[in-house]
Design a protein around this nucleic acid. Structure first.
Ligand SMILES: [Mn+2]
Ligand SMILES: [Mn+2]
Ligand SMILES: [Zn+2]
Ligand SMILES: [Zn+2]
Lengths: 142, 142
DNA sequence: CCATTATTTTATACTGATTATTATTCAATA
DNA sequence: TATTGAATAATAATCAGTATAAAATAATGG
């Protein structure tokens, strides 16, 4: 499942990125991981192939890849804690760009289908959903 | 919409919390905010009524209220960035306790109903959903 | 109401994740 | 191959949040 240098070269060209050895190895480490890992995890994996690489380079390139759409960010939230005093069951709409949160109501989840897809043991007693998209002002800007 | 001292006293008793002035004011600030605010935001609001309050007290009490179920946490994610190399459209199951992330597939979203509930201008071009619950090992422990 | 004890608050130090800075090295390209 | 702009590495700085310990306050029993 490892990309050849040629394949990465094409991807980079498509997005206007310079091809560096570090970039290639960082990208391949994420693709090979098949999971949802942190920059530190990726750093540890990449260091096995490039012991001299800097953690900052891993961060820089992960951010770059996310911006270009080569990778997906799994935690597209505000980076700080947010609290909600509204205990009525309700879901949230989160803006992927500005991280704002709005309430959303309504039964738009097919619980039957969802349950069918759940791995065994996963407890969904009170399902809480977040839907990501772009809020009004962010989609207007873009 | 402000709680009386008597009402907060009851809530605290129900959860075995000592009643302090700081606690009452922090709680009321969240309830009065009608939004999804950060500890710093709450701190700023509370300082208007208790100028000498410490930021640590705000953090302590917000955490306490979340644990007791008096407040809901809006950002129940791992506190560090996570990346995903899988660009196929798919959703995520997130464990509210250990923050692990699993992929989940399947059409369990009623897009018609969801669209009906969306505020105007919200761009849901490629809907990404996160479903929160307890993973197998965390629900077993509990 | 007062004294005792447990809890809470404050002030401050500390940690971990991430970003900024800058000198050096490297990739693109002519 | 030489030039030049971009990327990297090393390191300092920042920011959110947590830990610690002394001082203040709340709960409890007389
Ligand atoms: Mn809400
Ligand atoms: Mn995934
Ligand atoms: Zn937005
Ligand atoms: Zn878990």
């Amino acid at each position: 499942m490892r990309l050849t240098h040629e394949q990465f070269r094409e991807l980079a060209a498509k997005h206007g990125l310079a091809v560096t050895h570090q970039r290639q190895v960082v990208y391949e480490a994420v693709i090979a991981s098949h999971g949802h890992y942190s920059p530190e995890d990726i750093y540890a994996a990449v260091r096995r192939r490039i012991p001299s690489i800097s953690l900052a380079t891993v961060y820089n390139n992960l951010r770059l890849f996310i911006e270009c759409g080569l990778l997906r960010e799994v935690t597209p939230h505000a980076s700080t804690l947010r609290v909600d005093g509204n205990l009525e069951p309700h879901h949230h709409l989160v803006c992927s760009r500005c991280k704002s949160v709005q309430d959303i109501e309504g039964d738009f989840i097919d619980l039957k289908r969802l349950s069918r897809q759940l791995p065994v043991g996963f407890d969904l007693t009170q399902p809480l959903i977040e839907v990501f998209g772009l809020c009004r002002s962010c989609s207007a800007k873009k």
